[in-house]
Amino acid sequence: MSQQTLATKVGVTRQTIIAIEKDKYSPSLEVAFKISNVFEVPLEEVFSYD
């Protein structure tokens, strides 16, 4: 899945997806849940707390 497709499905910009991937931005719970819903996996499989 491309960054743009994920961004569109989640309702954020592609730049925000890039920032999340590079660990430059911690998304809100709402966006985090939306991302995990897109991939149909539990939240903790996508995000972890360091």
Binding site: G11, V12, T13, T16, A19, P27
Partner: peptide, 10 residues
Amino acid sequence: DEADLVDERD
């Protein structure tokens, strides 16, 4: 470039 969408990070 991309459309001028504003999200939570912006």
